[in-house]
């Protein structure tokens, strides 16, 4: 549980570096680092990474959308087959979550190549 929480917090904190011109996929390697640093059962790594990435992208988008009073999300939504703002936010979170989640799993298993982790979790 603690490892999961640390994974999520790590992604949310280090993910803020994305503001400074990191490529859009940077959330995947950040997830991988979290997976390496906070080893746990692979399925939990995957889940925690997903939640971290999901929240990172979703909260950033939500923050911008609130400041914008929904002007742009309304227009982009109709560009993507009439998605509502809430659905757009979910898609955004989902993409961030998938990238970070699988990044985290990769990091978790990369660690196993180097470090023997007995019955993590």
């Amino acid at each position: 549980m603690k490892q999961s929480l640390l994974t999520i917090l790590f992604i949310l904190a280090v993910g803020q570096l994305c503001r400074f011109g990191l490529p859009w996929w940077a959330v995947a390697p950040i997830g991988a680092v979290a997976g390496w640093l906070f080893p746990q059962m692979p399925v939990k790594s995957l889940a925690a990474g997903f939640i971290g990435g999901f929240l990172l992208w979703l909260l950033q988008a939500l923050w911008l959308d609130m400041g914008n009073e929904g002007i742009l999300s309304g227009r982009i939504g109709s560009l993507f087959m009439g998605l509502s703002t809430a659905q757009l936010l979910q898609v955004t979170g989902l993409l961030g979550g998938l990238l970070a989640g699988f990044g985290c799993l990769t990091g978790r298993w990369a660690r196993d190549l180097v470090v023997q982790t007995a019955k993590a979790g």
Partner: peptide, 10 residues
């Protein structure tokens, strides 16, 4: 990506 994608134009 909310850091450099369309959300940034919001």
């Amino acid at each position: 990506n909310p850091f450099s994608g369309f959300w940034r134009n919001a």
